[in-house]
């Protein structure tokens, strides 16, 4: 199953990466195994998002920058408004990074 490494940049992914880094540096973990764990994280995170998350969000804002490179869209929004069912968040500046969903299904 193809996976994205995209989600490693999330908080939970960064926490895992830091943990693995520390453990590899201290010698308790081999780099190979650390990579396996990360790959597993990619899969688990993707599955969890698909299966356990149902919420819907709308995003509005001023598009400051757009970029499409290597099948990854990057948007930088200004004065963005994120709305979901129960609340709304305003952000002065936010970056959206999105991989092509079809790459996973192929």
């Amino acid at each position: 199953m193809a996976t994205f490494e995209l989600y490693r940049r999330s908080t939970i992914g960064m926490c895992l990466t830091e943990t693995l880094d520390e453990m590899v540096q201290s010698g308790t973990l081999s780099p190979d195994l650390a990579i396996q764990v990360l790959t597993q994280f990619d899969k688990s995170m993707t599955e969890a998002l698909e299966n356990q998350v149902k919420s819907k969000v709308t995003i509005k804002g001023h598009l400051h920058t757009y970029r499409f490179c290597d099948n990854v869209w990057t948007f930088i929004l200004q004065d963005a408004v994120f709305k979901n069912e129960d609340n709304q968040e305003n952000v002065g500046r936010v970056k959206i990074v999105a991989c092509d969903s079809k790459l996973l299904t192929q």
């Binding site: 819907k56 995003i59 948007f75």
Partner: peptide, 21 residues
């Protein structure tokens, strides 16, 4: 299938529609 980290909160979404100018 997104993870948003906004205002120090993590919010997950299944679907998001964006409209940007």
């Amino acid at each position: 299938d997104g993870i948003m980290h906004i205002n120090n909160k993590d919010v997950l979404f299944n679907k998001a529609n964006g409209e940007f100018d």
